[in-house]
Computed example of a mutant assay.
Amino acid sequence: MSKVFNFCAGPAMLPADVMQQAQQEYVNWHGKGCSIMEMSHRGADYIQVAQEAEQALRDLMNISDEYAVLFMHGGGRGQFAAVPLNILPEGGQADYVVNGSWSKSALAEAQKYGQANLAADYYSEDGKRSITPFEQWQLSKDAAYVHYCPNETVDGLEFDYIPQTDKPLVADMSSCILSREIDVNKFGIIYAGAQKNIGPSGLAIAIVRKDLMGKARQATPSIYDYQIQAKADSMYNTPPTYAWYLAGLVFKWLKTNGGISAMEAQNKLKAEKLYSYIDNSEFYHNQVETRYRSRMNVPFMLKDDALNSLFLQQSEAAGLLALKGHRSVGGMRASIYNAMPVEGVDALIEFMQTFAVKNG
């Protein structure tokens, strides 16, 4: 098979080494005569797999014992509901910062369960999307928490700072977790759908400060109750065992390859290369304010939308997959998560150069 680079925003590409190991172990895991997905989640073998995955994630992110690390069902959208059900009291309120499609959806979900306020929205000025400055946020004095999305997959907007509030800070890190170093202690809850930088879809990781647990509403489904899941080691019911196993392989791969600091350096290099080419091109342009450009998701437009179909057809033929932009934004989008090598970005830039010359 010729070299292929998958720029899909999610489910995204996984490290080739991880996929090859999973393939080798698929039918006969560690000589047991069956697949890991066929083993009981209560058995000693799988419990070891689960524990090693959690410990590897704790090591990577320097997560202290003050936090529970939960492996849950439902992906990121499940956490849109889990957060207010667990920490938004009846009659209380929470603040939501919207900087793209996913944080907008998180706000809409939270409004089903109580007063969820729009504290800030993103905006467009001079054709560039941007994030409302922190000093203009309308934060509530009595908010139970402040929710934001550090990186918006669809719109290509990424915070370059962690907001400082006196309320628990909740972050949807679905598309940026493990891509750069952060101080977990600045957050009340971090959650992430797995299908971008962790593993296959369906799994969600929730990193929850323990003092925020035990406050769930009575109507909260048990599988979304953080305290119940923590007491059951994320095995209150049968978890997504294969996704958890694959996540563990990814965490170990990250540790073997230099950890988050090494990923951050590579992600910075990849993004700088691609944005630099786009900025110096008369054929392509990016519509995000430079300060808030995402390292993970790079949207770009061609000078003529009529060329979009041809660009996608020829890029796929060249082994560059899933470059179509989200329907709400249009154009193109290259998602360059941890598993995307620099070689893939170089190949994309080379194709973009050739396409521009032929069609400029």
Rank of each mutant, 00 (worst) to 15 (best):
K3W: 15
C8N: 10
C8W: 07
P11M: 01
A12Y: 08
A12K: 06
A12P: 09
A16Q: 11
D17Y: 10
Q20P: 08
Q21V: 15
Q23M: 13
G31H: 07
M37C: 13
S40F: 03
L57H: 10
L57D: 11
D59P: 12
M61Y: 03
S64W: 03
D65H: 13
G78P: 01
V83H: 11
P84S: 11
L85C: 06
G92A: 03
A94H: 00
V98T: 13
V98K: 12
G100Q: 06
S101Q: 15
L107N: 01
L107I: 05
G114S: 05
G114A: 00
D121C: 10
Y123M: 04
E125F: 14
K128L: 12
R129S: 14
I131K: 04
P133M: 02
E135W: 14
K141D: 14
A143D: 01
C149D: 01
D160K: 15
L169M: 07
L169R: 07
A171M: 00
M173K: 04
S175P: 07
C176G: 00
I177Q: 04
I177C: 10
N185M: 03
I189N: 05
I190L: 10
N197D: 02
G199T: 04
L203E: 11
A206T: 12
K215Q: 10
Q218Y: 07
P221E: 12
Y226R: 02
I228Q: 09
P239R: 08
P240N: 12
A247W: 15
W253F: 10
W253N: 11
N257L: 01
G259S: 06
S261M: 08
A262Q: 01
A262L: 03
A265Q: 09
K270L: 06
N280I: 09
Y284L: 12
Q287K: 15
Y292T: 05
R295I: 10
M301S: 13
K303F: 12
D305I: 12
L310V: 04
S315K: 01
L320P: 00
K324T: 01
S328K: 05
R333Y: 08
S335L: 06
A339S: 14
E343M: 14
V345K: 10
Q353I: 14
F355H: 01
A356G: 05
G360K: 00
